[in-house]
Simulated assay, not measured.
Amino acid sequence: MRELTGEARARESLRRQNRALAELVATRTELVSAMLHELRTPLASTLAMVEMLPADTGDAQLDEALELIARNVRRIAGVTEQIATISGMENGTLPISRKDFDLAALLSKHGFAVESMETFAGDRDRLNQVFARLVEAVRALGGAGRMTASTDGDHWRIALPLPPDLVTDRLFTGANATALMFARAVVGRHGGTVGVESASLVVSLPRSARPPGSADPAP
């Protein structure tokens, strides 16, 4: 009887924790959506005005100031779109395609030493973006010596070496942080993971599993 009571309490505790987690995720999703909505409207009008600015006003200081304003507004717009993409990937509102493609060829293009790979089913364009951005981010940290892709049981282990004294994903800040967030969102939708292990940033992708909850793209 005591064992049954303990199991019931454990199940109820787990249900409460799951409800709390679901509420937290929903709150975060709603907050991000609301913030993006508030940002996009003024950004759109500001970008339109930036495009109307003269290239040369005849005042060197004013020209420099206007160029700086335009550059920063475009940067804010770019970051906003990145956040929107990451959020859409995480909450499933952005589609992931499910088509067979040559993952080995894609990785080789980005400089990985690759074992022979079977055809992979997933979103080639999104994964191409992931690896392009991760390679750039890791190289900016001084890493990515010999990048490899090899089999690890039922997964592919795709490794980007980090500098030996910098082996944590807390290194990823600014633009590098968004690259890591984007990678985790896209790879997660493919049933994989992204993390730091054995002095490398490692992407793990299932060898045969198809992206969970995705649908084939319309012909």
Rank of each mutant, 00 (worst) to 15 (best):
N128L: 15
N128E: 14
N128A: 13
V130C: 08
F131V: 10
A132F: 15
R133Q: 10
L134C: 10
L134I: 10
L134D: 04
V135Y: 00
E136V: 14
E136Y: 13
A137G: 05
A137H: 05
V138I: 09
V138G: 06
A140F: 05
A140W: 06
A140C: 07
A140P: 04
G142T: 03
G143V: 01
G143H: 01
G143N: 03
G143A: 03
A144Q: 00
G145V: 03
G145E: 06
G145D: 06
G145I: 04
R146Q: 09
R146T: 08
R146A: 09
R146F: 05
M147N: 00
M147H: 01
T148N: 05
T148D: 05
T148P: 07
A149E: 07
A149W: 04
A149N: 07
S150G: 13
S150L: 12
S150W: 11
T151K: 14
T151C: 12
D152H: 15
G153Y: 10
D154E: 15
H155E: 14
W156G: 11
I158F: 08
I158S: 07
I158C: 08
A159S: 08
P161R: 03
L162V: 04
L162W: 02
P163V: 04
P163W: 04
P164T: 07
P164Y: 05
P164C: 05
D165S: 07
D165Q: 09
L166I: 15
V167A: 15
V167C: 13
V167S: 12
T168N: 12
T168D: 12
T168M: 11
D169S: 11
R170Y: 12
R170H: 13
R170M: 13
L171D: 08
L171S: 08
T173C: 09
T173H: 10
G174W: 13
A175F: 09
N176T: 12
N176K: 13
A177C: 06
A177S: 08
A177R: 08
T178L: 09
T178E: 07
A179T: 00
L180S: 03
F182R: 03
F182P: 00
F182E: 05
A183F: 03
A185C: 05
V186T: 00
V186D: 00
V186C: 03
V187I: 05
V187Q: 01
V187E: 01
G188M: 02
G188P: 03
